[in-house]
Design a protein around this nucleic acid. Structure first.
Lengths: 335, 335
DNA sequence: TTGTATGCGTTATCAG
DNA sequence: CTGATAACGCATACAA
């Protein structure tokens, strides 16, 4: 039976004619006599030995997994994030355990419980549940959602992105701006996009409107706003900043159905930086989130051993990307 | 120290005043005296005991993880699949270990090696590498790629989908059809879409063209084909079937740049069933793959204990979905 | 039925 | 620097 069974450390030790502990040291890169090391390495190769992760985990109390808690994987931004987090974890020798929540708070809490014990060495979470109970014992970082100073949060520079959108619209010749958004207006990371936009408009001295609708609002609510402020206004809006690319896309469709041309009559900027099919054209002109940096940073933080003294909120720089809904360029695939 | 440490089985045993083995039996649902069970359950609740997955895995040789090997997560179809596989695994009490390959054959093979040992109890793979070495010892199923009769493959009914596309185009009034596709014309699952389309055209007695370009071909190659067969032809094509939604989307853009109207002049049907932002409008009229069924079936198979006697290829039924590039309906979000 | 004892493959502690 | 040996937490055959 031993023959077909996978080789164990003591098999290697026997093969190499050394003690078990020596093998362990070689495997883990601890100092060992050169001659011993070579013999062990030869035996490892010969037996095709691989460490048993369960045994290692049991002994060391580290599973080698980090949990990613995320609403879903089909939303393009989440898909991107998932991919980059996975990549960053792989670079550090970790595996990813994916936890979909479906935006269900109970499921989120349940995942955290499950993971708390020993299943994962840390948690990276992107959640929309404000009253989540964060466990104290396990490294926990959030993305785009600030909980408290004890829970590090990685986010795009949402405020700066909002300002940038206002500046770009101004540069592109818009004179009457508006910010459209769905979601709570309480101060959280996504709402800072609106705040930054407002700040940018005020600094530029441009008139602006804000249309912040509660979660679950239908597009018809925006339609009312746009009809009143464009079709029926003698000072119609000519530049819109939308809270994310999805909304920008919906609003662009709405405008066109109303007979308005985008970008000729109205220019639209979104937020996120989503592309068709993941790697083709940008869907709209947009503020691009630095997803790779966000993922890398989140992984570095969740893996950092001294969790005290980490900054509570890290904002990563965004950039503007033309994508066909502004007058600066046609949509076209790049790199 | 014990106080803050997580409870172990013997802690529970001590608390309940029973033996270690009894606790194990209660946990695993084996028959135990009613009174004992209640005491154990009380102790479990009191100590907030949870089994240590590493220890369990070490003992039982089952990690509770299934690996999903997939090129990336940002391609919408893969994102969908990832989500549904995860859901199906969760239903069965398994965790998912995500392995991105970036379409790199070496990475794929490496993942399989890594996973082979003890890291995962089985593998579900969607790969484009034809000469992958499939391990014999571990449950392995593929999606959309047939390797051999020893490796079960779950796929959409690609052939049937191709036929369906031909039939729909005919129904919609097209009289000169073509199939556009990128990729090897060797017989594999995706190429059956073309075969089914050809079969459908012949059965209908409709004339058709096939434009099958090798991997990596630029869109300009299709442009040549379309110019010749539409703009410069006295019997122009009026119905196109594309190998997937991405190509359908690209071709639609190309046609419009050439001054043709879609769907008025040319109708286009894709394959996959991708939606904008994962859950909004379909991107084009399309043959929808039954992703949930595919995932569910793959999970059931990889988890089935008797791997012998499983059917080598399972084809799941597809359906047609109007999506704005045919004359039967405007694109609009549904359920 | 319940309790006891052994071992899964590692890592870590010590004595050589 | 090396080599025995004791845990880690659980499952399970075996004894009671």
């Amino acid at each position: 039976m031993r023959s077909k069974q996978a080789a164990t450390m003591s098999d290697v030790a026997r093969e190499a004619g050394v003690a078990l502990g020596t093998v362990s040291k070689v495997i883990n890169g601890q100092p060992v006599g050169e001659a011993y090391r070579l013999r062990v390495e030869a035996a490892v190769k010969k037996l095709d030995y691989q460490v048993n992760p369960s045994a290692k985990a049991l002994k060391s109390n580290r599973s080698g997994f980090i949990a990613l808690i995320i609403p879903d994987t089909t939303t393009p931004f989440f898909a991107l994030l998932t991919q980059y987090v996975n990549l960053a974890l792989e670079k550090r020798g970790y595996k990813m355990m994916l936890c979909f929540t479906g935006r269900d708070a109970d499921r989120e809490q349940e995942f955290i419980r499950m993971v708390r014990r020993n299943q994962a060495d840390g948690i990276i979470a992107l959640t929309y549940t404000p009253d989540l109970e964060i466990p104290a014992g396990i490294p926990f970082v959030t993305i785009d959602r600030f909980f408290s100073v004890d829970v590090p949060c990685i986010a795009s520079d949402n405020f700066g992105g909002g300002r940038l959108a206002a500046q770009k619209l101004a540069e592109l010749g818009c004179t009457r701006l508006a910010c459209l958004r769905i979601g709570s207006s309480l101060v959280n990371e996504p709402s800072k996009r609106k705040d930054g936009f407002v700040s940018g408009c005020m600094e530029l001295g441009l008139p602006f409107e804000v249309c912040n609708l509660p979660d679950g609002s239908p597009m018809s609510a925006f339609e009312v706003f746009l009809k009143r402020n464009i079709l029926e206004s003698d000072q119609p809006l000519d530049g819109l900043f939308c809270g994310n690319d999805l909304l920008a896309w919906q609003v662009t469709g709405l405008l066109r159905r109303l007979g308005l041309r985008v970008p000729e009559d109205v220019q639209v900027i979104g937020f996120d930086g989503i592309r068709m099919f993941g790697d083709q054209d940008y869907i709209c002109s947009t503020i691009v989130q630095p997803v790779a940096d966000i993922a890398e940073t989140a992984v570095n933080m969740v893996l950092s051993n001294d969790f005290t003294g980490l900054p509570p909120l890290i904002c990563l720089p965004v950039r503007y990307q033309p994508g066909g809904t502004t007058r600066d360029s046609a949509p076209h695939t790049e790199g």
